[in-house]
């Protein structure tokens, strides 16, 4: 099976060059295509920092981050941006939708920015929205409920058919019913699209849906259960 993401002995420091602190130690993690992985940890444990390292937004002090066989450290900023645009979809805790755009336009936006023509982007966005259970596209983004916003965000993350989807606390602030709805959509992605899914969460209910679960504490990653596959 092809690996969507491989982290080998990754260490991340924060602070200045003279005065820094290591917050991630020797992280080894593989996310295969079609697999879902959850990282659990308390607030401040370094979950978001780990995701930032996976996106190549922060340099790693040690080790390598490989996305579809490409070492991110060896990429120029332009190549890194292109990799992110083409191969990574991201779901944020608050959706991060642009309120100026409609849900359909929000979803179509990454495709348009990736060079896809408007008509194709629209139809692809409509299909992605339908896949997450949203078909009424007329309401302004502002009026969407929290669950709807997250599903639009999920559709947006998938519109470019990425190899890897990263989700940072995707159910934070949602009630249990809405959470279940969003989680169902999120964890259906790997099976449906054969992409890898890496979710950072502190919610056990979310983590329980993942193929593998890791606990991040003291900067170290420890497996919590055995793969369900």
């Amino acid at each position: 099976m092809t690996s969507a993401l491989v982290l080998t002995s990754v260490a991340v420091d924060v602070g200045t060059r003279r005065k820094h602190r290591r917050i991630l130690h020797n992280i080894d993690l593989v996310v295969d295509a079609g697999e879902s992985v959850a990282i659990m940890g308390a607030s401040g444990s370094g979950k978001s920092t780990l995701l930032a390292a996976c996106l190549g937004l922060i340099p790693v002090a040690h080790g390598t981050v490989t996305l579809r066989g490409t070492d991110l450290a060896s990429c120029s900023p332009a190549r890194l941006s292109a990799l992110r645009a083409r191969h990574i979809g991201m779901v944020f805790q608050s959706g991060e939708l642009l309120r100026e755009l409609t849900p359909l336009e929000n979803v179509a936006l990454p495709a348009v920015l990736n060079g896809v023509d408007a008509a194709t982007a629209r139809s692809r966005a409509a299909a992605r929205l339908a896949a997450v259970g949203l078909s009424d596209l007329g309401s302004p983004t502002d009026r969407l409920s929290g669950g709807e916003r997250q599903r639009v965000a999920l559709a947006r993350a998938l519109v470019n058919d990425p190899s890897l989807v990263l989700a940072d606390e995707p159910t934070g602030g949602l009630d249990s019913t809405t959470r279940d709805l969003v989680v169902a959509g999120l964890f259906a992605v790997p099976a449906a699209t054969s992409c890898g899914l890496l979710v950072a969460t502190h919610d056990k209910h979310v983590a329980a849906r993942a193929d593998r679960v890791f606990q991040l504490s003291d900067g170290k990653l420890r497996p919590l259960n055995v793969s369900r596959r």
Partner: peptide, 15 residues
């Protein structure tokens, strides 16, 4: 701040 995430992830902050 609102535009930053989508700009970074789509590698096209120009617009």
């Amino acid at each position: 701040k609102v535009l930053a995430p989508i700009g970074v992830l789509t590698a096209r902050p120009g617009p």
